[in-house]
Write a protein that binds this DNA or RNA. Structure first.
Lengths: 212, 212
DNA sequence: ATTTAAAAATAAACACCGTTTATTAATTTT
DNA sequence: AAAATTAATAAACGGTGTTTATTTTTAAAT
């Protein structure tokens, strides 16, 4: 006995090997620049072998997707020390931006591509557990703010969606290299990070005014 | 004489033919799904012919980029009838969203891809005329709002950037199919358009409160 | 220990992609 | 009518994701 078990272990080890290699290549070369053949070469197996462990490229991408969300949630962990929900909300935005700028390749994969989302649809999962969980962190914080009397008269879900849209838009424009090319950034010789930072500060100011 | 002129005309006609075909295919199949070979087939020429009129695919993409901005600015034209700048600002957001949802492929090309932006960098253009012009429409409107006493104490450029980030984020999340998969959208059986609409309404409400 | 059955890995192919080069077809100039 | 120029293309190169048939490795049964 134990043979079957070892085989099983071998199977998940191979899956992990592929995923870790893919993860590494993604961070290094960015989405769309990573091919099955690259991954195969990195792990020193033939391309066809990959297909023994993953149905197609989308499945690999989806698995990395889940890894990415774990990483994002990790970035949110330190936020528990902020007892005031509003303060936590503000810090959450900063953490999100930090995650996006320091893991641009991964952020692109998580939030800027439709392929992984389409894979969710294909699986008939319909559920998008990781996304829901991350969104819920935001939603609960907004709700806590509202129990303290902030953001009165605003629907918590819509307001959370609004906040996410803003932060995502800011990160996405930064990553897709649109910010560098707007006149203001060029004129003031501001780095992308600086523009994102001051824009977020303005958003913070706006949030403060919406508190009451 | 006139031969050279006819030739010239023929040359720009062919360029136009290629661009119109590419434009059509982009709207139909979305970025990344359109190949040089597709375009060639559509205009009934060989793929190699394309390269007699365009240096590479990026040059085609860049040309379409400019077309796209013209289309976007056209969507903004009807806004002149709104004399109140705040009202115009709100309508501008709606027009932007309408443009994005009805021309998803084009929107993706304009604002969600780094390739065309990288081409701008390569050309040493540095300037991104189309983008600046479009952003300026927003910026001027914000400034006009401020001369009426709205949005006091907020830097016009940062605030414009904030608004753009929000709207772009909303459109981008819609197009990249992330919105369909958030729990709330699924539970309430809301279409993407509906989520975008109610989120924008919430933003509108927030803007109203920031007026004074 | 040897043969047989099962599993794992791969080589080779298919149909795409962007792009380049050498060649052919059409047109203009001489 | 011949030469020179221009326009168009066929074919190829190196890349992509993926599939199929084949070979190698491993485990089980004799």
């Amino acid at each position: 006995m134990g043979v079957k078990e070892r085989k099983e272990r071998g199977k998940v080890e191979m899956r992990d090997k592929i995923l870790r290699s893919a993860h590494h290549l993604f961070l290094e070369k960015g989405f769309e620049q990573v091919s099955i053949r690259n991954i195969a070469e990195a792990i020193e197996y033939s391309p066809a072998t990959i297909y023994l462990y993953f149905k197609d490229k989308n499945e690999i991408v989806h698995a990395l997707h889940q890894d990415g969300f774990r990483l994002l949630v990790e970035h949110f962990q330190p936020l528990v020390r902020f007892t005031d929900p509003f303060e936590r909300l503000v810090e959450m935005g900063k953490a999100y931006i930090k995650f996006a700028t320091t893991n641009a390749g991964m952020y692109e994969l998580l939030f800027m591509r439709s392929e992984p989302m389409e894979h969710v649809t294909d699986c008939l999962d319909e559920e998008w557990k990781e996304g829901d969980r991350a969104f819920d962190v935001l939603l609960q914080t907004v709700k806590q703010c509202q129990t303290l009397g902030h953001f009165k008269g605003l629907d918590s879900q819509n307001f959370s969606m609004m906040i996410w849209s803003f932060i995502h838009g800011l990160c996405a424009l930064g990553i897709s290299k649109h910010i560098i090319h707007v006149k203001e950034a060029r004129d003031n010789r501001l780095a992308v990070d600086a523009v994102m930072h001051t824009t977020y500060q303005t958003f913070h100011t706006a949030l403060e005014r919406l508190k009451s």
